[in-house]
Design a protein around this nucleic acid. Structure first.
Lengths: 153, 153
DNA sequence: CTTGAACCTCAAGTGGCTTTAACTCGTATG
DNA sequence: CATACGAGTTAAAGCCACTTGAGGTTCAAG
């Protein structure tokens, strides 16, 4: 009657069963009661907590950050400002990665454009686009790109 | 006289020595000659190839993609169009991730704003921002956010 | 000759799961 | 009642692209 099996919990939270077991293993989810036959049984509490966890993960928070955020939900005496600080730190990371990717977009689309311009008649030994990538020239990367892409994802 | 030791190669290509050994191990770099005493000796060819590899990696190409791109540099009969195709595929990935991150930025900054608005006087039991994340409501995520963030990085 | 930095190899750790293998359990049908 | 099948169980390995650590050797300077 009451209680979901792992498959039901997975479906409700758009998670996979192995992921749920993994979260249990790393202590992110509690170890649930077992029914006869050793199968896990979950309740609505678990649905809520896992929904929360998955949503945080979708937002790109690390497991460790999620761990902290989840503990804040429990402890109402801290909560909001601390959560905001974590979210703000994460926001800074997201924005940094965003800048990186935008620079990357410029570089790679420039590379593609160069290829198209120089090799119109198909492949040939005159192609220089690739060679330019192995030149240790002064900071300039792909022709037309002046952004430093930094370290990519 | 001629030949760089691994540290010199690392410095010239802004790589670490372990990474160079790792690239050798996975067959991305050739196995270099050894001097007396078993230390690796590299030449300018290696500097060029590794520069190329690192630049591709900075552009976010996977090791496998780099492997192909590097082989294209060797084989001039294919080269340009094939390289462009790889770059174009990668560009599509970068743009997809870019869209994801932009949606994420909106969601998280909305969350931070909610925290700031609702918990002006410091932490308290009235904070609801966190709770909203565990509600299994209809598609809406963080208040003020109507984008589907999808799967994060 | 001694020191200490740089080199060597091999193995394990990182994050966040996914996949595989080999097993048991629960239920529906013949 | 036998059996087939899906869903559950565990433990361990695999993924990516490195990084880190342990423990030993070589090289160049003083």
């Amino acid at each position: 009657m009451s209680g979901y099996k792992i498959g039901a919990l997975a479906e409700r939270t758009r998670t996979s069963a192995p992921t749920i077991r993994y979260y249990e293993q790393i202590g992110l989810l509690r170890r649930p009661d077992r029914q006869e036959g050793n199968q896990r049984r979950y309740g609505d509490d678990d649905v809520h907590r896992l929904t929360f966890i998955r949503r945080c993960r979708e937002f790109g928070f690390s497991i460790d950050q999620v761990r902290t955020l989840a503990s804040l939900v429990q402890d109402r005496t801290r909560s909001c400002t601390e959560a905001r600080d974590i979210a703000q730190a994460h926001l800074a990371e997201v924005r940094a990665k965003l800048r990186e990717l935008m620079a990357l977009e410029v570089s790679i689309s420039a590379f593609v454009a160069t290829c198209d311009a120089k090799c119109v008649g198909g492949p040939g030994p005159d192609c220089v686009s690739l060679d330019e990538l192995s030149m240790s020239n002064s900071g300039k990367t792909t022709p037309g790109c002046n952004a430093d892409p930094g370290i990519a994802a």
